[in-house]
């Protein structure tokens, strides 16, 4: 009876968004008289950072400080349409819609500033700190707040913008079957080291190492947070979670947290992550987004690591001690594979 170490690898090419009838998202941007901007979305923040990243994108495009932007994602009854927060699509689809809306609002803001400064809008630039000035002449300047106030109270303009980003439905070529289901992929590779106890069937993860290519990391801390938390969720799916009963009757299945195991804070393994930034040509400022693939590669990597450790292929999730023991029994004991 012994504990066996094993190493498993998984790689993933993950589609950003989907192609079922077209994949649009909309954004509306408008200024308030104090020069702060509101961004209306129906793209819900589940904790993944939708509000943070769209706020950054809006501020960058408008040319105002991030503190001057408020993102409202609260109400799908009154907000502009969005397909939703799923399919790893949020940053890419919604971010592009926000850029389009913010560009339109920015153009009106610059027109209003140009009228106040008696110059051409094309000659103006923003400093990102709340000021608009004439290119090459920073002293010829007006604050974004003053420009927006002038637009509303003197000029009668709305400093606002509409944006939509649509990946249209891709038709299937009837002769070849060819189509373009996805326009943008993210990529990752993950290596998991596990230890399997051939007496108890217990599986523990010793270490995870991963590399993720997800376009430009628009908010590096949020990306890291997603990758760490998502890998934990992947591990939880690989080795712990199931709503199906282990035993013959459905009634024996879990109905609460007491019967639904998940790894706790004592079950986590060190996870070393390398984020490779290759800006996506069609992504907002090059971003794709981590999304679902934070979790997905962990499952096959753990299954491969179990095979490497004791030579059994567990083909049903989760990989529980019971399934490992049944596999070991059928095989007549552990057969550690070549160390990778």
């Amino acid at each position: 009876m012994a504990k066996h170490r094993g190493r498993g690898v998984a790689t993933i090419n993950y589609p950003i968004g989907m192609n079922l009838g077209g994949d649009p998202s909309q954004a509306l941007v408008h200024s308030n008289p104090d020069g702060k901007f509101g961004v209306a979305l129906s793209s819900i923040d589940l904790g993944q950072g939708m509000k943070s990243v769209t706020r950054q994108i809006a501020a960058e495009t408008l040319g105002v400080p991030v503190e001057d932007v408020y993102v409202d994602t609260a109400d799908s009854d009154t907000g502009p349409h969005c397909m939703g927060s799923f399919a790893s699509r949020g940053t890419h689809r919604v971010g592009n819609a926000v850029i389009a809306a913010a560009k339109e609002a920015r153009a009106v803001m610059l027109e209003a500033a140009a009228e106040e400064l008696e110059v051409n809008p094309e000659d103006l630039e923003t400093d990102g700190k709340g000021n608009i000035h004439v290119k090459g002449a920073p002293s010829r300047s007006i604050s974004t707040g003053a420009a927006c106030a002038a637009a509303q109270f003197k000029q009668g303009r709305t400093v606002s913008g509409r944006g939509i980003f649509l990946i249209p439905l891709s038709d299937v070529d009837p002769d070849t079957g060819e189509m373009t289901p996805v326009s943008c992929f993210a990529h990752a590779a993950l290596v998991v080291e596990v230890e399997v106890d051939d007496e108890t069937g217990e599986l523990s993860v010793v270490e995870m190492n991963s590399a993720y290519e997800l376009g430009r990391a628009l908010n590096p801390k949020l990306v890291e947070q997603q990758l760490v938390g998502g890998a934990w969720m992947g591990l939880s799916h690989a080795a712990f979670e199931t709503t199906e009963p282990y035993y013959p009757e459905r009634e024996h299945g879990p109905v609460d947290y007491n019967g639904y195991p998940m790894p706790g804070p004592g079950d986590i393994a060190p996870h070393n992550i390398s984020v490779l930034e290759r800006p996506a040509p069609d992504g907002p400022y090059g971003g794709k987004g981590p999304g679902e693939m934070c979790a997905n590669p962990v499952l096959p990597a753990v299954a491969n690591a179990v095979f490497n450790a004791v030579g059994i292929r567990v083909d049903t999730l989760p990989i529980t001690p019971e399934r490992i023991l049944r596999g070991l029994k059928a095989q007549g004991g552990a057969r550690p594979q070549a160390r990778r």
Binding site: G47, Q225, V228, G229, G230, A231, W232, M233, Y257, M262, G264, P265, G266, I268, H271
Partner: peptide
């Protein structure tokens, strides 16, 4: 000791590491 102290608290998002 930190892990022990939060072992009765479930987190679904972070993977616990940032909390610890």
């Amino acid at each position: 000791q930190v892990v022990d102290a939060i072992s009765g608290n479930i987190c679904r998002c972070t993977g616990y590491e940032p909390i610890i």
